[in-house]
Design a binder for these strands. Structure first.
Length: 860
RNA sequence: GCGCGUAUAGCUCAGCGGUAGAGCGCCCGCUUCACACGCGGGAGGUCCCUGGUUCGAACCCAGGUACGCGCACCA
């Protein structure tokens, strides 16, 4: 290491993420380390980023999700796979249109003032300017995506793929046009899908309204929305309902409009609800729609697409829904038709985007028939070709897929993929991508549901329907990492379109990451101000610390956000930095990393390294990130820093160059391997340290992640060092209990056993004087050895401790004996468990008698 | 309404049939030559309740209780 670099390392006693991250990221980019090439060697490994909404910015879900994906992709890249992590965004029809409309509103213009074409151009301008914001934010996290390949669901070639899918599904008869009841969002003036409707409990009033029946009778219906009475076309009762049997077949008069409608019998009417009589409004209610269809009723609309009343009652035409409600209640009340009002709490659908109450209404839309497509996706999961992690979430998928309904895929928006449907002047239409020959063809004004296009993401991003090198190389992909809320919107749809069009399942594993809740245990909420901004965390703690914390929180269940875990990550990065400084600055100039293992301490840490390496690989590959982070933290902090480095210092600071050289080699080797192990989790700090390792080496992110096979285990050395650790810990405890300073010398007599050869280590780490006889010393258990600790100063202070220990040991001994005395245990428990219990009994018995001898000695 | 999940140290969470764990916080002590974002020591737990299975239960089963999250057209 040259003098400048050495001085720089010496100065930097803290790891400052802000100082390193941009520089390290620049090195990766300069080396084109993220670039994926189809003809590169190695088995394929592919993840596509669930495309975030183009209007979005990085939130906690993205950050966790991104940390998981980057961890996997870096691991696989280091394992020699030819990896692709595909970035991109979706065009988010409604959200984007709203963003741009809000912009226009500031200029006092509406999209209607602009006209469709100019508006769409305006959206593109917005997209060119800010559309990659969220992808740029992923870079702050260290995400190693191939940014050259960023895709957008409105890109020309992608759009072509979307239309191709539409046409093919239509040819197969799976896409059709129909007039059906849909969820209508009047502020947005579009239909929305079932999944975009959010149900909330609402307190409403249930009005009981009296309708006149020909012949002087009357019938009372119940409704929470009296204004819908305008569109009633029947009154229905349950055929089994005695109360109303005599009215069936007669004619009722609808209040407010005076329409004369039949009273019909239908068993979908629930006898026990309200009055038991149902006003039937086929144009605005799912059940009523079905009843209306079966009874041949018409389905007039009381409101139009903009949320205004229609001319069913001409004098109210043009009023808002709220005004209509008030007017209806007022008139019914004035006419004395409201016989009862009662509070009703019930679930009502709201439009996710606009927040308005969803209005079910009959509308002419395009639908996708789902049963057949769903069956292939169900089969892929059922047969284990696709596995969910955690497994139980398959149920969410099955529940939705098995009760699937037609998917309304058309939207009355301006921003999106316009349907490849062409209308002739005579009203007939054809479905094809190109405009048909001849004059007068008009393209459908509808666009497709955004989710329809993002369902093709895994293969459309790779060039489908063309047979591209990328598609051949990386499809199907390996794992989809996403949040639970997206299972049905996305995962399910990607699976069946993948099978249908790309000829195979899009991935084999679906890893659903935890939801990070706010500190109050509920979902993070913007409106409640309980959200946490990951970019702010990165600014304050660093990207590595943020990744560390998020991954530590990430298990198979939801977790509350705990900033302490991020802070722990920062401390860990700093610890790693400083441990590295010790090794790098203390090592012999000529030393290169090598598992030399000159000393038992070296062989012990190499043994541990081998164990941890193997465990880590398993945890990485089974998505157990929280356990992985803990495992590596404990190894680095406790084994390496607390013990190995303390022991290594002795040889690093010696004058004997041969010893120093050998110690340096192993030290550097251990450091090198730790950096490799940690890199997928903490890419920045590990890459930064890597650059300081001696020797000619490239980037850490391009280094090889080795299996543990090459590390030799040495159980004898491990046992000896284990005994030293136990003894030194006991010596520290004694000093503390006796009120002695931490470096107060103690006399120690080493007994035979694993520890016998470790006098130097005990002397150095334990600040002990090794003696050959210690009259009046206190016996201490340390692994397999008995050690005598001498020094009169300790005697009194240790007496209390000894008594305490005697009580503990006696208790444990009694427990072990009771267990063994139980015939049920010794006869029926596995032999190994019984043997272990016997061993414990013997150990406690020996220790107890030693303590008692000591006490007797002292007292006598 | 249906489904899923969670209840373990003051806080956030591991452990999921055989000696109760971590980080933070707390207490005591350290200007130890990598790190005070540190070092050493310590205190702290009827593992939600009630039953059951088992030689043995924090862990398995049943029933409660509390909380969270999905899904859902009762007007």
């Amino acid at each position: 290491m040259d003098a400048d670099r050495r001085a720089a390392l010496e100065e930097r006693t803290r790891y400052e993420p802000a100082e390193s991250e941009a520089r390290v990221f620049g090195r990766w980019e300069a080396a084109h380390a993220f670039d994926a090439e189809p003809d590169a060697p190695g088995d394929r490994y592919c993840i596509c980023l669930p495309p975030p909404n183009v209007t979005g910015s990085l939130h906690m879900g993205h950050a966790l999700n991104g940390a998981v994906q980057d961890t996997l992709i870096r691991l696989k890249r280091m394992q020699g796979r030819n990896v692709l992590w595909q970035p991109g965004t979706d065009h988010a029809g409604i959200a984007t249109q709203m963003v741009v409309e809000r912009e226009l509103a500031k200029e006092g213009v509406s999209r209607h003032d602009l006209g469709r074409e100019a508006f769409v151009e305006r959206v593109w301008a917005w997209r060119r300017q800010t559309g990659s914001t969220i992808i740029e934010q992923y870079k702050r996290l260290g995400a190693s995506m191939d940014y050259r390949r960023e895709r957008f669901t409105m890109d020309a070639d992608y759009a072509r793929a979307v239309l191709e899918v539409f046409v093919r599904l239509h040819e197969r008869g799976l896409i059709y046009r129909d007039s059906r009841l849909v969820n209508w969002s009047w502020p947005l003036r579009t239909a929305i899908s079932d999944l975009e409707v959010e149900h909330r409990e609402v307190d409403d009033t249930l009005y009981h309204v009296r309708y006149d029946v020909d012949g002087g009778d009357e019938i009372v219906i119940a409704t929470v929305r009296p204004v819908t009475i305008l569109a009633d076309t029947a009154v229905a009762v349950n055929p089994a309902d005695e109360r109303y049997r005599h009215l069936v077949g007669r004619t009722a008069t609808v209040p407010l409009v005076g329409r004369r409608v039949p009273i019909i019998a239908d068993d979908r009417v629930e006898i026990g609800f309200g009055s038991g009589a149902l006003k039937v409004t086929p144009g605005h209610d799912p059940t009523d729609f079905e009843i209306g269809r079966d009874h041949g009723l018409s389905a007039p609309l009381f409101m139009d697409e903009t949320g205004k009343l229609t001319d069913l009652k001409p004098e109210w035409e043009g009023r808002s829904l709220a005004e209509g409600h008030d007017a209806a209640v007022a008139q019914l009340r004035a006419e004395g038709r409201i016989v009862r009002e009662e509070p009703l709490r019930h679930a009502v659908g709201f439009c996710q985007r606009s927040g308005a109450r969803v209005e079910p209404l009959v509308s002419l839309q395009w639908f996708c028939r789902m049963e057949e497509l769903a069956a292939t996706a169900i089969d892929a999961v059922r047969s284990d070709r696709i596995r969910f992690h955690p497994r139980r979430l398959e149920k969410v998928f099955f529940d939705w897929m098995e009760s699937i309904r037609p998917w309304c895929i058309s939207r009355q928006l301006w921003w999106g993929h316009r349907l490849p449907v062409w209308f002739a002047p005579d009203g007939s239409h054809v479905v094809q991508i190109e405009r048909p020959d001849g004059d007068g063809w008009e393209q459908s004004t509808d666009v497709l549901d955004t989710w329809f296009s993002s369902a093709l993401w895994p293969y459309a991003t790779l060039g489908w329907p063309l047979d591209t090198a990328s598609l051949r190389r990386w499809y199907p992909g390996d794992v989809l990492v996403t949040g639970r809320d997206i299972i049905n919107l996305w995962v399910a749809r990607m699976i069946f379109t993948g099978i249908e069009f790309a000829g195979d399942i899009p991935f084999t594993d679906v890893y659903i990451n935890s939801t990070i809740q706010a500190a109050d245990g509920r979902r993070m909420s913007k409106s409640l101000g309980t959200g946490v901004d990951p970019l702010d965390l990165i600014d304050r703690y660093g990207a590595d610390a943020t990744r560390y914390g998020l991954l530590k929180m990430c298990s198979t269940q939801d977790v509350r956000f705990a900033e302490g875990m991020i802070d722990e990550g920062r401390a860990f990065a700093n610890k790693l930095w400083n441990a590295s400084r010790l090794i790098l600055l203390g090592a012999s100039a000529a030393a290169l990393p090598a598992p030399t293992g000159a000393d038992p301490v070296d062989r012990w840490i190499l043994t541990r390294l081998g164990e941890v390496n193997a465990t880590a690989i398993t945890l990485y590959e089974t998505y157990q990130f929280s356990a992985l982070v803990k495992e590596l933290y404990a190894f680095v902090w406790n084994d390496v820093c607390d013990w190995y480095l303390e022991a290594l210092k002795i040889r690093l600071y010696t004058d004997d160059e041969a010893i120093r050289q050998a110690a340096s080699e192993t030290g550097l080797y251990v450091l090198e391997r730790i950096l490799v192990l940690l890199h997928p989790l903490l890419p920045f700090v590990t890459e930064e340290i890597w650059a300081h390792l001696p020797g000619d080496r490239g980037l850490l992110m391009q280094a090889r992640f080795e299996a543990a096979d090459d590390i030799r285990a040495d159980p004898a050395a491990a046992a000896a060092v284990g005994a030293v650790i136990e003894l030194v810990t006991e010596l520290r405890r004694m000093r503390s209990d006796a009120g002695l300073g931490p470096r107060e010398p103690l006399d120690v007599l080493l007994a035979d056993g694993a520890i016998a050869g470790q006098a130097d280590l005990v002397r150095a780490l334990g600040h002990a004087t090794i003696v050959s006889a210690a009259p009046g010393g206190v016996p201490v258990t340390a692994g397999d050895a008995q050690v005598l600790v001498g020094g009169a100063a300790l005697a009194t202070a240790l007496h209390t401790k000894l008594e305490r220990r005697r009580a503990t040991v006696a208790g444990e001994l009694a427990k072990a004996r009771a267990k063994l005395a139980n015939p049920g245990f010794s006869d029926r428990a596995p032999a190994a468990v019984v043997a272990e219990e016997r061993e414990r009994e013997a150990r406690f018995a020996a220790e107890l008698s030693a303590i008692e001898a000591r006490v007797a000695d002292r007292d006598g």
